[in-house]
Design a protein around this nucleic acid. Sequence first.
DNA 1: CTTGGTTTGTTTAGTAGACAAACGAAGTTA
DNA 2: TAACTTCGTTTGTCTACTAAACAAACCAAG
Lengths: 389, 389
Amino acid sequence: MKSTTTGDPALIRRINTGIALDAVLKGEPLSRAAISAGTGLNKATVSSLVQDLLDRGLLTETGQGASSGGRKPVMLEFRASAGCAIGIDVGATYLMGVRADLRGEVLAELRRPMEAAGGRSVMEQLIGFIEELLPKQPPQPYGVVGIGIGLPGIVDGAGSLLLAPHMDWEPTEVARRLEERFGVPVHADNEANFGAQGERIFGAAAGIRHLVYVSAGMGIGTGLVLDGQLYRGASGFSGELGHLSIQFDGPACRCGNRGCWERFASEQAALESAAAIGCGSLEELVQLAEQGHSEALRIWDEIGSYLGIGIATIINVFNPEAVLIGSRLSMAARWLEPAVQREVQARALPFHRRQARVRFAELGDGSAVRGAAWQAAEGFLARVKAGEA
Amino acid sequence: MKSTTTGDPALIRRINTGIALDAVLKGEPLSRAAISAGTGLNKATVSSLVQDLLDRGLLTETGQGASSGGRKPVMLEFRASAGCAIGIDVGATYLMGVRADLRGEVLAELRRPMEAAGGRSVMEQLIGFIEELLPKQPPQPYGVVGIGIGLPGIVDGAGSLLLAPHMDWEPTEVARRLEERFGVPVHADNEANFGAQGERIFGAAAGIRHLVYVSAGMGIGTGLVLDGQLYRGASGFSGELGHLSIQFDGPACRCGNRGCWERFASEQAALESAAAIGCGSLEELVQLAEQGHSEALRIWDEIGSYLGIGIATIINVFNPEAVLIGSRLSMAARWLEPAVQREVQARALPFHRRQARVRFAELGDGSAVRGAAWQAAEGFLARVKAGEA
DNA sequence: CTTGGTTTGTTTAGTAGACAAACGAAGTTA
DNA sequence: TAACTTCGTTTGTCTACTAAACAAACCAAG
């Protein structure tokens, strides 16, 4: 019944290995001397740690840097090509995936529509899709270090999909089954959680520690980054902010509650309004707005208002630094934004409003795949630092 | 520009000291051999660590335990009397305080109404109140190790009161000024945050890692414990769940938003309804309910419904293990509870509902003082483990 | 083109602290 | 009483960090 990891010399080594590696990741290219100065570790210690990391193929020497009056430093860089990570976004109607290096930079990309019902199961399609993304020649020495899978539904802490409201998918142990199939760690999580990570690392929320990512698609999903890390509730799956009620006596939702936010502010809500003017898709509604169609503009303004109303509540509750709106609805950012900002200005508490920026996602519909791939790579680095790889 | 604490033998020593101390705190009385077995630390290491802690007065040997077939073990206990901590709850109309030992157990208690306007300032009263709580003979060897102050308003990360809606108090650097005055660390925070801690450690939420504490008084304040620790938003002050909107087109609130929860479910809301039946205080309204007064029962049911509506949203958003209702309204727990549970059952998502328990606070109006004192003591222990004391 | 000062990175010696094993003291059971 | 357990300490070994010394590499000024 070990309570915590007990401290011994090996722990020191692991800690310092992590510190050195992080230093290079943040400030590359970097010399041994610079690492020592930046971290407080002794020069000798840094030399030893760097030698280990070179031997493990995680760093490379990339030649000499500029002298600052004495011997030229040997510059070190992280070897992002020592392995690769796979990131997948499973949408209700599409599959999207990337192969990325250990830094999360995209090496290959693939997307395709989901096959019509009656054909192969979603799981079979997913496995085939991943196989196509795998590298022909596995990178040395680590090969594929992990797979991240964003799913459109409720996912528990073990990476099992429990509920997928907008698609035909039974509860499935996605992570476990893929781990068995491919023999590498699999991180399965809600697509919005990965979207939040993607934007935080590569997109509009760089370096932000308190972030709410609103994935406005058919329904509304959310990814919460609190204090720099993904928040999962007590059960391991994240808050369902789509079912935040904004009107306690409003229309009943299939979840049992009344006046749920996603009934007012999702793609579905937009399509319902759009039907009245004979318009059947978001793309069409965007086009009408571009042509100045007044009713279309009114619909976007209305959806934007409701988005803003919910976001104001989110700001009051979480006091985040940023709220990012992503997924399908972000294609109409231009027409939604004024209404969103108007409601947030009017409704959020002054103290919190001053802090929070409300923006649209920068990576568009790519936030989730990028985040998923990054998570897989990051998991590998965490294992390295923990001495498991 | 040191990035992190670098790993060296002293760090290991601190880590292991913390592990040993925690083992005793959780399982006392405990022998050295039992600590070794329970933590995985070597017997020799434990002996050395325990000797240090004995020398520092943090542990005592309390005689021999029962043999299990060999030499009798020497039992060790945490010396909670090595210092003491002060906890204060500043209410809008009262002051309440305790002196506690290092485990947070109450040694002395004091409460008094706030002086009428025109007399001494709140700060002056507070300082005098603390002075009365200080021990005549400071406990050896650490004396007063810290002060925790729960405040009825928005408090930032530095312990400054920014806004106190229900009382006459300018923005004040409470923590800094008291630290200067008393020369010990001061933790100032929102009263609801300490209430959450109090219930988590000593009350109805023992050991729960995801907790929302709803302090239902004149307004509604909340304390959020996420993943075992207090959540403070980006600005350092906690979410204002009282201004969670439950009806986007509802009545305007002074905060600028519409349909704020605390307009429906606070003491103030209850009093507004009660005025119609000529009733002027919560206590009176409780009494009427006890006598079976039907209109009074209806009012409690209504307030309970609104409480439940907000709590259902909170459950959907945070997916906590427990929601605790504390402060003044908890005196009517008996009449509120059915309505609260009814709405939560009807509105919270099935997945989350199964997880979350909704209860009333166990420590009554004492949650916050207890939590404040515990926080001060805990801060001391954290400093011990960090090697600063 | 030499000389002096600087910077980089390695080598060497010393130290803190954990662990394993052996041991004496104190108990229990047969 | 003898044999076996358990507790806690002592002793020696090992790991990994630090400080200091050092060699190599480099710049710049005379």
